[in-house]
Design a binder for these strands. Sequence first.
DNA 1: TTTGATATCACCGAAAACCGTTAGATGAAA
DNA 2: TTTCATCTAACGGTTTTCGGTGATATCAAA
Lengths: 219, 219
Amino acid sequence: MKEKIYVHVADDHKILIEGIIAVINTDKDIEIEGYSLTGKEVIDWSKEKTADILILDINMPIFDGIDVLKFFQSNKTDQKVIILSSYDDVNLVKQMLNLGAKGFLSKNSAGEHIVKAIKAVAAGEQYFSDDIQNNLFKLYTGQKVAEGERPESTIAHSLTERELEVLKLIAKENSTSEISGILNISTNTVETYRKSLLKKTKVKNAVGLAMYAVKNNII
Amino acid sequence: MKEKIYVHVADDHKILIEGIIAVINTDKDIEIEGYSLTGKEVIDWSKEKTADILILDINMPIFDGIDVLKFFQSNKTDQKVIILSSYDDVNLVKQMLNLGAKGFLSKNSAGEHIVKAIKAVAAGEQYFSDDIQNNLFKLYTGQKVAEGERPESTIAHSLTERELEVLKLIAKENSTSEISGILNISTNTVETYRKSLLKKTKVKNAVGLAMYAVKNNII
DNA sequence: TTTGATATCACCGAAAACCGTTAGATGAAA
DNA sequence: TTTCATCTAACGGTTTTCGGTGATATCAAA
């Protein structure tokens, strides 16, 4: 016979929380312990209470999901966390995993995956929704993207790999010197990429680059 | 005896759609007709089918909610629409109303409001979630707002009208001097707004502001 | 083997962004 | 009436971005 799995949900959108609760309630083995609307609430909650699984939105005001994970890590809080994100960026997934997350759900994935993810992570496994799994697989195996899936992304492919890396970092608010630190290259080189990006994408400035990245699903 | 109310849901996050469906299904009078994951799907859907109520996320890829409303307006499609938004900007609400929306739900509001909104709009009324109602009252009538519970999260990102204007122009790649020209104010003033925006949104630079605008559908 | 694409780096100057602080004018709210 | 939010503006200084114009190394393809 099974023990119930207790779940805490954290997201700044109450509607989404209630939706997740509704979906979870369809399963007999899982119970909602409570919810939080901000990262601060999550941290406060974790000091007193606990749950088997924490479903955590990365995009929250005040303290975001990353802050919460960092808090857990530095306080050695052993909390199994499933990340909920609207973006399926592989680098983000990697960062989350390094911060101790056990599962990663894209908001684009169907609700049924929540239940699967909860049960998998509660059982000590990892769980990723399909789209993220694909991306991870491609990244680690160096596989090329199937030709039929992404029609528009070929336009963005006039950008080189390195340019794309720089572009992503620009879109994440990094300055030239920060990027140079992250990629271990000279600031001069980063500036060269910036100029190249501006020329290729025909936008005026870093904001234009960020918007380009958004529109072309690069982020 | 009552007729059932048929609802179509459009949002790019499937989890949120399923959540909304789960919430709606608790009510006997309301039935889900179907859902769409992009604005394009909504437009295609509207050409063939119909529902009493369309719940429409403004923040969708390819065609966003505004595009859908514009399509309805230019095609004289008589579709009652309830807008679902993560941002409660009053200007946005005004724009939506002018485009024919009948209700406006902030994603910060509780799920129960969905049912209320559907019934109100189906009955020919308008509906706004509490936080938006407060803002509207302030703007139009200057009436005193009831002292209900208001979480800090909504107050956190309350940008002024002028700040929103500047933010939009920044997100459109305009420089400070260009914005000063467009708004007919001094460059110094524009810089003051930039600083204020950076402080309020807690982002590092103009790129962060642009991303904030995207995420909160201010653009 | 030459060409082309990519990744790397450098220097200069101009423009823009960012930081901190201050402050007047206005109109609404307490 | 006084306080508060908002809009407006200014000043001085630092950092970052942008534009232009180079160069070197590597690797793969023609």
